[in-house]
Design a protein around this nucleic acid. Structure first.
Lengths: 295, 295
DNA sequence: CCAACCCATACGTTTTCGGTATGTCTCATG
DNA sequence: CATGAGACATACCGAAAACGTATGGGTTGG
């Protein structure tokens, strides 16, 4: 069975005429006539009654017609669906993100993506430093917002923005009165830390900053989320050092201050498998850059 | 879009390997590989990821796959349906019958047809002499049981059996005591007649019989059905002359007697358009002959 | 009786398809 | 590190299928 024959058959059945159908198919009438007869020979039964004024479906032809036109429609739909997926007009995209970005980026990124990728099923997955790489390689996530980027031969990276590390302090703290805080003012003060560097690379950037200035801050507690860290800071338990984007979604009563003598930055990057469908990723990148630029 | 390509695609997707699929399709591996690449070129997007250990559907491929396999199944089903209809294993057959045959033939014919044509939608249509020809020509009925046959260049006829005309009389009538009745004994007796010859050819056979023997029977009433005629005979209104098959389904109290000096017969024939699907008709004929032989 | 219309057939040309031989890449193994 | 196996890709050639043009045959309507 050849789809060409089915298409010809459906055209003739619809036009009730070989000549008309040939015109519609932009071919000459004789070859179409031949194809129809070949189809009939293949099925071992006439599909049309030849009248003097055109062709008319037999019962067998009717039985074939209903299925054939559906099959053609399905095939066309399949082709269209594949093209749509390839073009990023339809499909699935699983977006991973490092949790420090959740409160700052997601509220704006999610609606932006739904706008720029209509017809695409989006889902969002929280990542940690240890899970992000295998999830990307397994295609469990299509693209990941990382801070900082992943380096791996199979993974492609696009820098989307950078974040400065800032001090988060209670508004009533004496440090809050300075517009910029010297790092050594932090000496000995209790630190509310994010998870260990193996899970959360931000923590290693913070550690590097303090080590460079030979400042020691005792870690009074490690928390899982930026929200918890900010809550403890507000409670007066200590200070925290976070990427600037954590400011978004921070409750009143907490101020963020840059450092006077340090401007350590962490890059925000999108990471994806090199062989992933490129169009979806490209659209994602545009949206993500737009959102991150507004932070 | 060519169905061959879709079939190849589905095979490769299912086997997750060009080589395996080629084996299943009984062809060499290289041409299959070429066809897959042509399909990808046609769609403008890769459908597979080529790994070292086989092929793996991309998202676009997945989108195509679900529709393509359905489309193939539908096409195959369409082909099978057309073949089944052609072979008489499935389809529709509208069976027409002259009403005089209804009580005698239908009770046995209907179950016999349902047995011999399983999967065929049967329906039964009552015909009169004036409607049977146009209904056959319009294909509103596929085959008609006629008494007698129709003669028309487009209509084919097969004789199935013959019916002798018999006298139907009340059991208490003096005529009932004879094993065979001379026609001239009917002279002047009231006749319960079926519809006029234009509608019911049996009536013209009856008229011919009487005319040949120069017997006149006043028509005391014309009725539409054999049942009505028998009812009136039983009521003592008069006599009736009917095909022998009317005996079946006649109430007790009515006897059928042959004529001593006449054996007029009417043929029972099946009639159908020459161009109708032959297999259904052939099976119908076998069943009808079997049933009529038992009358 | 002829012109118009429609489908069927014949034949030469072109396109496409399938098979064989071979290349390339990756992985596993000694 | 070399090598061999396994998988897909490429190149080329012969065969088959499809297409177009020209033409035939049957029916309808003027």
């Amino acid at each position: 069975m050849d789809l060409r024959r089915l298409r010809y058959f459906v055209a003739v059945a619809e036009e009730r005429s070989v000549g008309k159908a040939a015109e519609r198919l932009r071919m000459a009438q004789p070859p179409l006539s031949v194809q129809i007869r070949k189809l009939e020979a293949e099925l071992g039964t006439p599909l049309f009654r030849r009248g003097t004024r055109g062709m008319d479906l037999t019962e067998a032809g009717l039985a074939l017609m209903s299925r054939a036109s559906e099959a053609l429609a399905l095939a066309a739909e399949g082709v269209e669906a594949a093209r749509a997926v390839a073009a990023g007009r339809r499909g699935r995209l699983s977006v991973g993100y490092m949790f420090v970005l959740a409160s700052a980026v997601l509220p704006q990124l999610v609606p932006e993506l739904r706008r720029s990728l209509p017809g695409v099923d989006l889902d969002f997955v929280e990542l940690s430093a240890s899970t992000r790489e295998p999830l990307l390689l397994d295609r469990a996530v299509g693209v990941a917002l990382c801070m900082p980027a992943i380096h791996h031969p199979e993974i492609q990276v696009a820098q989307i923005g950078t974040q400065t590390l800032m001090l988060a302090a209670p508004a009533r703290s004496p440090l809050a009165r300075m517009t910029a805080v010297p790092v050594d003012k932090l000496q000995g003060r209790p630190l509310i830390a994010l998870p260990r560097p193996e899970e959360e690379p931000t923590s290693s950037a913070v550690a590097a900053l303090l080590r460079r200035h030979q400042v020691v801050m005792p870690i009074i507690s490690r928390v899982e989320t930026v929200h918890s860290a900010l809550g403890l800071v507000l409670a007066g338990e200590g200070l925290s050092i976070l990427p600037a984007c954590a400011k978004l979604g921070a409750p009143p009563g907490i101020v963020f201050r840059p450092f006077l003598d340090a401007a350590d930055t962490i890059e925000i990057a999108a990471c994806w498998r090199r062989d992933s469908s490129s169009q979806l990723i490209r659209t994602f990148l545009k949206s993500a850059e737009k959102v991150v630029a507004r932070i």
